[in-house]
């Protein structure tokens, strides 16, 4: 690891240290990537002293400070009661030790776990070194994308939390030297295209201040299910965040977001549109997710994800159908 400076930010205004610095949350991803030679910041600005408040908003929603630890969010009574899908998603991620360290802002900004990205010494990666090539394509692609990838990059975003946030229509409040703005989570992550090194729409000199969620009608009928290679402490092969409300047995509103399948949480909008206004029989759910999967482009090593997404979505939604909203 290269020599690095360290200091703690006293305020949001203090948190714009310059391009060679990185903001440090729990460090669970950044410290590891520095040790692996993927990241070499000149300095680390510890932002864990900034807002970690979790507070109800006037519109029935919730605002979570970017420095809130993942474990604190998942354990918070309002999150558990109003957004159980979010609590479940966070609890599906990493281990208890890592959730105690990781912040909400850091969780959103974590990098892909593509093994070729992390292998600075031995693998080509367009995300790590733009223009150098991609050794994942043609390599071991079990954990890689089936939606929205490009010939430059097939990496997935590893967050569970962000998948639930996508389903819940969360917004990311950010601040920069020029002021504050709000980015819908749906627009926060970029697809790789020809610039896989650009992962988010956050400016280089901006900081995430908080994440806001609108009131959710899905508290009573929502779920997060994660399918992985071992029962716990593993990244998703596929995950499904879903919520549904019914009126007279017909789908009034539905949200489906998929994890482990793209460079961003994949909101299954086509499946949602197909289901809205229908009776959610197994056949209808199957047809809806199959319509979404029509645009999937699996790699030779991850074709199984098509069937896994289909079956997991049908299982989750058919369970929710039986849950009173």
């Amino acid at each position: 690891m290269n020599p690095v400076q360290y200091r703690r930010a006293e305020s949001v205004e203090d948190a714009f240290p310059g391009a060679q610095w990185r903001l440090l949350g729990g460090g669970t991803n950044l410290v590891d990537l520095m040790r692996k030679g993927v990241e070499h910041p000149a300095g680390l600005l510890d932002v864990t002293g900034l807002s970690e408040e979790i507070a109800a908003s006037d519109d029935g929603g919730l605002v979570i400070g970017a420095a809130a630890r993942n474990s604190a969010v998942a354990a918070h009574p309002l999150v558990r009661r109003r957004y159980p899908m979010l609590a479940r998603a966070i609890l599906a991620g990493a281990s208890a030790q890592i959730r105690n360290m990781a912040t909400v802002g850091g969780n959103l900004m974590q990098r892909t776990r593509c093994a070729y990205f992390a292998d600075a010494a031995g693998s080509r990666c367009n995300k790590r070194a733009p223009g150098s090539g991609c050794d994942a394509i043609g390599g071991f692609t079990r954990y890689h994308a089936i939606f929205g990838a490009s010939p430059e990059c097939v990496a997935t975003h590893p967050s569970d939390m962000a998948v639930a946030l996508a389903a819940l229509d969360a917004r990311v409040n950010v601040a920069g030297p020029g002021g504050t703005r709000t980015i819908p989570l749906a627009e926060f992550y970029r697809l790789p295209g020809d610039r896989p090194d650009l992962e988010t729409t956050l400016g280089a000199d901006e900081i995430i201040v908080s994440v806001a969620m609108p009131a959710s009608p899905f508290a009573g009928a929502s779920a997060y299910r994660k399918v992985r290679d071992r029962a716990s402490y593993a990244f998703a092969l596929v995950s499904v965040a879903a919520g549904v409300t019914l009126r007279d047995g017909v789908v009034d509103d539905v949200r489906i977001a998929l994890g482990g399948v793209a460079a961003r949480p994949w909101r299954a909008l086509r499946a949602e549109e197909t289901l809205r206004g229908t009776r959610p029989t197994d056949e209808a759910i199957d047809a809806a997710i199959t319509a979404e999967l029509a645009s999937a482009e699996p790699l030779p090593g991850n074709e199984f994800k098509i069937e896994l997404v289909r079956r997991t979505t049908v299982a989750v939604l058919s369970e929710l159908r039986g849950t009173p909203a």
Partner: peptide, 24 residues
């Protein structure tokens, strides 16, 4: 950060000491 052998408590909460900088 994959094995937990380095687990310690900070302010009573379990964390991984390998991924925690001493400065933190």
């Amino acid at each position: 950060g994959a094995c937990g052998a380095c687990t310690v408590l900070i302010d009573g909460r379990r964390v991984l000491s390998c991924l925690t900088l001493a400065a933190q």
